[in-house]
Design a protein around this nucleic acid. Structure first.
Lengths: 150, 150
DNA sequence: TATTGTTATACTCTATAACTATA
DNA sequence: TATAGTTATAGAGTATAACAATA
């Protein structure tokens, strides 16, 4: 099979997408025998770090919309990793359970492995530059003129 | 609403995912009145650049599996942007039509706008480093031990 | 036997609109 | 009136397995 040319390879956006796809595929592989999806891991770790946070706050922190948080939280509760208590009738305070804390610790171990695989490909200077550039790229174009975030 | 801490922000993989989501959302917005999805644009541009390529070759070039190329190509043909001719009974040669070439030119104009919005946020040195780092990160972990790609 | 295109199907993440009950 | 959580639903991308026709 012939190898085609692809002018898209010059593009920042395209390279970001391709690289992220590889990173994510590796992350999913890293989680394969752990029965947690990326979005669940992210959610669990943020709750572990912020006891008594609300569902909306977690969504805000990890850029997942309120509506999409519902099944994620439901599954974490169902598996006994997260517990919630009423705060004021419309808000719920989220906390990880002991089991959830163990899962969070294991998740961090796996994340460290996964991260190392990619960090090691870059020189310290390159890594530093990339890690400084990404948060700049991450600022949403729309955020300039107020807007309600999500 | 309280702003939560998020230790994930230190991670290369997580920052890549967040930044890419913003880039992609902006790209989709850039295409919003053009009636083309990102995967369709990518496909069209690679065909335009490689006349008489096969469907599998395009998939290989842009990391989309054979099975998932089918509806993309079907839609491009349906819209009269791509034409195909039989090559040998199991392969098809793809070409953009005149209309497809016009769409490709318009797509490149929009991509240039979109790209500029993000490139302009980085210094030339940062951009150079990032554009050098991404292809390194993009190499799949599995590719080391032969493997059949997809 | 390996390859090309295809079908069918399922999963993950994301997006929107609308509802409820509360504040 | 605005907010927190929810429901329902749709879309886009991706993944796998299996098949027919062909090389």
């Amino acid at each position: 099979m012939a190898v085609l040319t692809n002018a898209l390879d010059k593009l920042l956006g395209y390279q970001m997408r391709r690289a992220t796809a590889v990173l994510m595929a590796d992350f999913v592989r890293t989680l394969s025998d752990f029965d947690m999806r990326p979005a669940e891991v992210t959610t669990l770790l943020v709750i572990a770090e912020n006891p008594d946070c609300s569902q909306s706050e977690v969504g805000e922190a990890i850029a997942i919309k309120r509506a999409n948080m519902v099944p994620i939280i439901a599954r974490l509760i169902e598996r006994g990793l997260v517990a919630r208590t009423r705060v004021d009738g419309r808000s719920l305070a989220l906390r990880v359970t002991d089991k959830g804390a163990e899962h969070a610790a294991e998740a961090w171990r796996r994340i460290a492995e996964h991260e190392a695989r990619f960090r090691d490909r870059l020189t310290p200077e390159e890594l530093e530059t990339v890690l400084a550039a990404l948060p700049v790229l991450r600022v949403d174009v729309e955020d300039s003129s107020s807007g309600n975030g999500q």
